[in-house]
Design a protein around this nucleic acid. Structure first.
Lengths: 194, 194
DNA sequence: CGCAGCGTACCGCCCAGTCGGTTTGTAGCG
DNA sequence: CGCTACAAACCGACTGGGCGGTACGCTGCG
């Protein structure tokens, strides 16, 4: 309880600094000062600076995987599930905007085994999403004239780009943007019916 | 002629290393070794490591601006111009995949005045693209129920994400992907007509 | 000579990580 | 409760190495 306060505040400070300055340009000294602790305390809970970075990835990957599985478990018509997933991913990504910034910007700073793990878990997520799209195609609801990989990249690109343009203080709310982007995506991948 | 060989090979080596390892984790020593020159030679043509990074941005920004203006100057129906621009941007971005990787990943490593200049020139480009979309909306060809900024972000996201998934050795050719992504984008932003 | 084009040895700085030491928490015992 | 014993938590000065950048010397050409 009390001990995690140190670890938590260090992680929060690291996240903020990594998102604004980048991983490589942020020193451990800066992190511990921002967190109000000392180097000794930090290195008591983390083995390396890399640990801090990986913790951010781990948290995000776990959360997204859990959310995807929950929504899929709820069931429903394929297109409805797909819509729910897309909206949720965008909303979650907006909630975790700093994490997203770090996620895509600093992947190459992870040590190799960890980068591999991140890639593996991302692929798992990707494959589950791809299965949904494939199901939609099998049901005739999703177009097949464009490779599935392109369809999927087309969606993930929106999620990815959020941290580059979306601002919580901007004109659009999280829910609005989530629904708008999902509309755009679904209207481009569903077959045109009369 | 001969002198530029040194500068060019340094820039090429820097680009490759920045794209694969990241800017901060690439040392000047690595760059000059990869380019087959020495530090002294490099610092004869560039004032700092930051110069190398900015040169990459400068080249990309100039190229894209020029291409956009050429296509717009050619004229034609708004939707046709928009389509041509989208296809061209994707194709150009695929041609400059390493540049794109560096572009979005290392923006925050630029010194502040240069980062501001990059932002300014990107905004110029953004505004010209936005004008096309606005024209499409005025003509009733592009939907207005989604904020224009979201429509535009939806397109740039595709361009942005290319360097994260597209491989020239993959199944899809540059032209195919460019047309497929453009199709997806246009079919999502154009109004549904019967 | 003079100068552009380089090569090389070197410098000052900063950083991740360490390590001996100190404080704080707690369990056991009478 | 008091006291001891020990471990976990924490401190911060220090180090070794790598980094960007520089100083200066050596060419060869005009």
């Amino acid at each position: 309880m009390k001990t995690t306060n140190v670890a938590d505040s260090v992680l929060q400070a690291a996240l903020d600094l990594f998102a604004t300055q980048g991983y490589a340009t942020t020193s451990v000294q800066q992190i511990v000062e921002a967190a109000g602790v000392t180097k000794g305390a930090m290195y008591h809970y983390f083995q390396s600076k890399d640990d801090l970075l990986f913790a951010i990835y781990d948290r995000m990957l776990s959360l997204q995987k859990r959310r995807l599985e929950e929504i899929v478990a709820d069931g429903g018509r394929t297109t409805d599930v797909l819509r729910a997933v897309c909206v949720d991913v965008v909303e979650t990504s907006i909630d975790l905007l700093p994490e997203g910034t770090v996620f895509f910007r600093s992947m190459h700073m992870l040590t190799e085994p960890r980068r591999k793990e991140v890639t593996r878990r991302r692929r798992e997520y990707h494959d589950q999403f791809a299965a949904l799209v494939a199901q939609g195609q099998a049901e005739g609801a999703v177009r097949t004239d464009v490779p599935r990989s392109v369809l999927i990249a087309h969606f993930f690109s929106d999620v990815h780009y959020l941290s580059y343009w979306y601002s919580p203080s901007g004109p659009e709310s999280k829910t609005e943007v989530a629904n708008q982007l999902t509309d755009l995506f679904l209207s481009s991948i569903t077959v045109e019916d009369g």
